[in-house]
Computed example of a mutant assay.
Amino acid sequence: MRRRFAAVRGVLQGPRGPLGWVLLLVAVFALAQLGTVTGRDTPDTKNYLAYALSLRGEDKRETAAVVIDHACAGRAARARREQSVDVLKFDAPSPAARVAKKCRAELWREVDSRLRAGQTGGHTLPFLSARFMRIFEVRPGYPVFLVPFVTVLGATWGLWAAGVTVTAAGGVLVHLLLRTRRVPVHLALTGQALYYVLPCGTTAMRPMAEGLMLALTLAALWGCALALDGRRGAGIALAGGALAALFAVKHSQALFLGVGLAAAGALIAVRRWTRGRSPGGAVLGL
């Protein structure tokens, strides 16, 4: 364990001590997200939030009330933003209240009818058919990650804080990965900043599993980089742990990444062998 922390400190501090710059980028990114606390939802958000609330012990009706209120607040916020940039309607009365009311009526009608029909199993709410909802039932990783955030901060701020946390972590992992591969400090910081401002950062901030998937994928890649850099034990443990966690988030992604890393390790081993060099314990471990 001490060796792993030492590896992190060594990569972050380096000869120029960039830790302060890494944290500054994280702070700037987090502050920038305060402008859009609501309105990032996707159709999947309702299912993940319902799953998280169910893990916390809420019943179906209580969960539905929180999830529907959050989803409709997001729709209302998006409607208000769209109106504010419409040159013909920007000064019209806000549509937020009307959109939220219509949204609540629609979602409650869908959920209530399915609950009355007996579709009450699982951790999610019956927004769609039971067959479709089973897709989310086998993805407990992201809801488990959300539980402490929504418990402490509530649905809206909890989802926002979870998004900031996982996206900030992804950027830091980009920096760590690049520094482990001997990329100069200023380029590693540039990579971290680009992660935040490019579409990958926008996607990671959305309240769905993709942000956590990206962070765990980067953690696995960093583990591989550590292993190739000679820190085999820490690297293999990190890569294996990240893949295991990723399997709980989305097993298809974990399997794809695992096969890809295994293939990459095999190619490196073959290349070293053809050049008369030992494949290396780190490569064989991967």
Rank of each mutant, 00 (worst) to 15 (best):
F5N: 01
M208K: 09
F5K: 01
A193P: 05
G74A: 13
A215S: 14
C72K: 13
L261G: 09
G240L: 11
A225F: 03
R75L: 13
T45P: 01
L115A: 03
R139S: 04
Q83M: 10
R40G: 00
F90A: 04
N47A: 10
G191L: 06
V172C: 06
Q33N: 05
A76L: 06
R232L: 09
R40M: 01
S113P: 00
A32I: 00
T42E: 07
G118H: 00
R181Q: 15
Y196P: 12
A96T: 06
A64L: 14
R75K: 15
L31W: 05
F145C: 03
A193C: 08
H251D: 04
T151L: 07
M133C: 01
L173S: 02
F256D: 04
R4L: 08
E137Q: 08
G141M: 03
T120R: 14
A96W: 01
R9S: 05
A244D: 03
L218I: 13
L255D: 01
M208S: 10
L25Q: 14
L226D: 07
H70Q: 15
L243P: 11
H123D: 03
I268S: 03
T38M: 10
G240S: 14
L115G: 00
S129G: 15
I236M: 07
G154L: 02
A64T: 12
G233C: 04
P279S: 05
Q13K: 06
P207Y: 05
E58R: 15
A32K: 07
W222Y: 12
L284I: 14
A227L: 10
A162D: 08
F145M: 01
P140L: 02
V67I: 12
R98H: 04
A73E: 13
T151P: 02
L128C: 01
A6S: 09
E106C: 02
T38S: 15
G14A: 03
D229N: 15
S94A: 05
E110W: 03
V283Y: 01
V138F: 04
R271M: 02
T63P: 10
L107T: 04
A7E: 11
A96K: 03
C224F: 05
G170H: 07
F247H: 08
A244Q: 09
G158F: 04
A161W: 10
M208Y: 15
G122A: 06
A209I: 06
L214D: 11
G121D: 12
V67R: 11
L12D: 02
V26N: 11
W21N: 05
D69K: 13
A79P: 07
A71K: 12
R9L: 07
M213W: 01
P93T: 00
A282Y: 02
L216G: 09
R56D: 12
G260S: 13
G280V: 04
A169I: 12
L53A: 00
G39D: 00
S84V: 05
A7Q: 07
A254Q: 04
V150E: 04
R2S: 07
W108G: 00
Q33S: 11
A244G: 14
G241K: 11
R3L: 06
L189P: 05
L23F: 13
F256E: 09
T217I: 14
R80L: 02
V144D: 00
C72S: 14
Y196A: 12
A92P: 03
R231E: 14
L246P: 08
Q253F: 11
R277A: 10
P18H: 08
P18Y: 08
A269V: 07
G17E: 07
